[in-house]
Design a protein around this nucleic acid. Structure first.
Lengths: 117, 117
DNA sequence: CCGTATCCGTATTGATACTG
DNA sequence: CAGTATCAATACGGATACGG
């Protein structure tokens, strides 16, 4: 029982890593190769500078991505997945992707049914 | 490319199902058997009535749980996982649990390192 | 290009008190 | 017990302007 509470607590802590709107999408955006800040921004669509910075800082603080700065002009910064970040992509995130592929229609049906009832 | 944007969009839609603080914990709480509202509340620890109601309504609206009301005194209501809800538990949620079991220490180390640097 | 600093509207959480 | 109503606190996403 104490055990269960700990497990649940861990679960929430883990989900926090993916709870913020853009964080998981940044991870997905970096799946193939390191990207410059601007490239990440473009990959996400319409995200503001401030929010993007916050997302990158969170991911850095959790050790899911790295930041590499090049001494060039114009400035160049590249973000990349860490090995840990990649395991999060390959594990839970891909599991969610698979679930959606398999159950998206079922989910929509259930949502409509619940709305109707 | 359009494909990728769609995938990312789906991914966010899926994560939304687990993004609210208590929703995934309700799913976990119902994993073994249907529970009364009060039992769910106790299982989660310190959640307010209002927030619990919101969580239950979201889960109902998404077809992840069911609500069954018994005509008794005192009132009795039971919530239970739907088959769809169970697949979410067995898939993405368990994947996150496994990831935490395997990488929790790594995550903590990375967090401390990032904080120090 | 990279990143920070402000300001704002809204959404979410929560405590409390109350009704059926 | 089940659920709603109200009010306060805050966190989040975002637009904009500015500085490295």
């Amino acid at each position: 029982m104490t055990d269960e509470l700990i497990v649940d607590c861990q679960l929430r802590a883990g989900l926090e890593l993916l709870a913020h709107t853009w964080d998981p999408l940044v991870i997905v955006a970096l799946r193939d190769e390191p990207l410059r800040r601007r490239a990440v921004k473009d990959a996400l669509g319409g995200v503001s500078d401030k929010v993007l910075t916050e997302a990158l800082h969170r991911l850095l603080a959790n050790g899911l991505i790295t930041r590499r700065s090049f001494a060039e002009a114009p400035p160049r910064v590249e973000y990349a997945l860490t090995p840990l970040g990649r395991t999060l992509l390959d594990g839970p995130l891909k599991a969610m992707g698979r679930w959606l592929n398999q159950h998206a229609d079922e989910l929509l049906t259930a949502q409509e049914a619940a709305q109707a009832g």
